[in-house]
Design a protein around this nucleic acid. Sequence first.
RNA 1: GGGGCUGUAGCUCAGUGGUUAGAGCAGGGGACUCAUAAUCCCUCGGUCGUGGGUUCGAUCCCCACCGGCCCUACCA
Length: 509
Amino acid sequence: MSRFYITTPIYYVNDAPHAGHAYCTVNADALARFHRLRGDETFFLTGTDEHGQKVADAAAANGVSPQEWTDRTSARFREAWTALNINFDDFIRTTEPRHAVAVQSFLTKIYDNGYIYKDTYVGQYCVSCEDYFTAESAPEGTCPIHGKPLTEMEEENWFFQLSAFQDRLLEWYDATPGNVTPSTKRNEALGFIKGGLRDISITRTSISWGVPVPWDSDHVFYVWYDALINYLTAIGYGTDDARADSWWPSVNHLIGKEIIRFHCVWWPAMCMAAGIEPPAHVQVHGWLLVGGQKLSKTMAQQGQVRLTDIQPQALVAEYGVDPVRYYLLRETPLGTDGDFSLEALVQRYNTDLANNLGNLAARVATVVGSKCGGLSPAVPMDSVLAERAAVAVDAAAAAWENFQPHLALEATWKLIGDTNGFLEDNAPWKMEPGAEVEAVLGSALEALRIVTVLVSPAMPATADEIWRRLALDGTPTSVPLATATAWGQFPSGRAVVKGDPLFPRLATA
RNA sequence: GGGGCUGUAGCUCAGUGGUUAGAGCAGGGGACUCAUAAUCCCUCGGUCGUGGGUUCGAUCCCCACCGGCCCUACCA
């Protein structure tokens, strides 16, 4: 049995959970669910990033301690993930004691290995931002955010010798062609490395809300540097090395394209410096964009609509959890940008969910009711649908394994279409009760059962419900994929229930 | 300024150095009536961003330009 470790980035608590977070997290969840179904030992990690000056400031502005503030803001993400039926195995917070242990252990290792040194950081500082800017990002000598003149400041910092890892990173990229996908993003990361690496400052003295530097109590680690280490904290680095070794480095980091540099350059170099293998795989996804689509009042603030105004819970409340999950997984391939629109969501809902899947389940149940007394007939082994199902299962499984949920769902929906076509070809509603109609409906029911298994990573609640209506034993995921999708298992004599429409059609604007 | 990505039917996207460039949805027509006015079949539809170049031949290779976007290092 193989193992599958997948992570999302840890989300910055000062942001409210929005559709962009949901996109990444739902994809990770579906991939994790697929691998569990496949029989892999699976570990799915998400969480929140809670350090840094901005968090401390926000806490102060709200009159609470930083810890209390992050307790509150971190909970918003948990609530969003509950609403989206995210089945993570661990939710890490960077303010947890276990994380401080891992960070200190990891960075002490790098320090002991000689890749951390003390130096004075000199830079152009914006007092309002409380941050430094480079000549490139602030060419006018003024803060690009506040427009105020920058002042030269210097601060004593600890630096990570990133520059020492350029060759090793290039060798690693050369030796592991699949380490970053898709390849366009991999090229981007390679470009960063080839462009030359500069050492990075990893501690601050001006900030107290962070993990203390064990060898210099005046400093805390800079927020990004501590954040990346969460991927090790959660598997027991520094506290349970046997467990950590069992999961590392076979990790899959699912990240947005804006943080390629951190995950594909810094992070592997940090791992090398600490004497461990770099992460096996980084899967980059693009951004969801909002193209001038008007959203309902419940979902958007007034004025311009941004993706970050779209709250996951509001989407779920309006459309249901599985339609939202389906839309996020089906519409935009991992790796490219996509356009987020309610119009497209409604279209996916009506076309794929109501007309295809929901209607298929309803019509099959109805004809089983009228022609077979509501009881499932035996499954014929020589059905044409058996071949179609095998094709769909193979294609869907391959797509899930390649981090292509949209293709997995496309393959699954092909089987739904094939089954609808099969019913048209055979028109069981015109037949007299008997062996012929039973063969047709036995095939249709079996195809629907397999569809239900294939759909389960994307829409777990829907899959459970169809399974229940089909009066099948257990759940769609209680048997491993390879076994569950073998043709011919639908037991005869089961009392199939039609039930209410799974996805009532939505009115289009 | 530098680096990189991207521009294919109304929409979302596939795709290949070579006869008539594909899919889904939307649109049009037909069939059917078991089903959530669903389903199935047929069909309309593209100067493959613009201009050059390489080539016997380019949507796919190269260059320039135009449009959209990301990164530019400590702005999770």
